[in-house]
């Protein structure tokens, strides 16, 4: 986790420098931080690869089916939450780093 200028929080809500009120998930050490997240319809989740490995972000949950493709270390990707329910997010390359998003 880096604390660059203006970056204070990498968990939950982040104000600067990413878009305000983004929910941020960090991929690091072959895991997600946090591993569970609560969000609301209309909010955006940003995935930040801070690991040493390339990761993928995808979901096959009915509420949100998406595949953000692979992200090399340092890259980010995001998805907007559109429906209430539970979204199981995974990395296709590393299945041992699940993330659950509960959308209210």
């Amino acid at each position: 986790m880096s604390l660059g200028s203006g970056v204070g929080l990498r968990i939950g809500r982040v104000a600067v420098p990413v878009v305000a009120e983004d929910l941020v998930v960090v991929q690091k050490d072959r895991g997600c931080l946090p591993t569970t997240l609560t969000g609301h319809v209309g909010e955006r989740v940003r995935f930040s690869n801070e690991d040493e490995a390339t990761h993928n972000v995808c979901s096959e949950s009915p509420q949100a089916t998406f595949d953000l493709g692979t992200r090399k270390p340092g890259q980010q990707g995001g998805v907007t939450l559109h429906e209430r329910g539970t979204i199981d997010v995974q990395c296709e390359i590393h299945p041992k780093m699940p993330l659950r998003i509960d959308v209210k």
Partner: peptide, 22 residues
């Protein structure tokens, strides 16, 4: 940084710092 944000930052720092050393 407001106090409530620190509640999120400190555990995260501990976890990720531990991860960096692991």
């Amino acid at each position: 940084m407001t106090a409530w944000r620190l509640l999120f930052v400190m555990p995260a720092l501990a976890v990720l710092a531990g991860s960096a050393d692991a």
